[in-house]
Amino acid sequence: MSIDIDTARRVAHLARIRVQEEDLPALAGELSGILTFMEQLNEVDVDGVEPMTGVTPMRLKRREDVVTDGNMQDKILKNAPDAREGFFAVPKVVE
């Protein structure tokens, strides 16, 4: 599978990473190279094999559905690049 420039642009946008137009050809080339390496997986007969979800056969742990933590607004906002009046602040989302 080879990735063209349009696909590279689309993937970069899906990943929310800004890639300059002039860098797209190189990116497409690199991604294609890696995907070609992955093509080897097509040689393997995987008929009837269940995809592996975890390494240890273990039922996901459950616990009581109760509040165990909280009341730490200051700590949660402490590392925010922009926090105001107890909220994370971001550029305007709704017009």
Binding site: A15, I17, E30, L31
Partner: peptide
Amino acid sequence: RAEGFGPEVQRRVMIGTY
């Protein structure tokens, strides 16, 4: 994310996205 992630991380995030 373009400024904060280095080239290898960007590459792997995009491969993963794809």
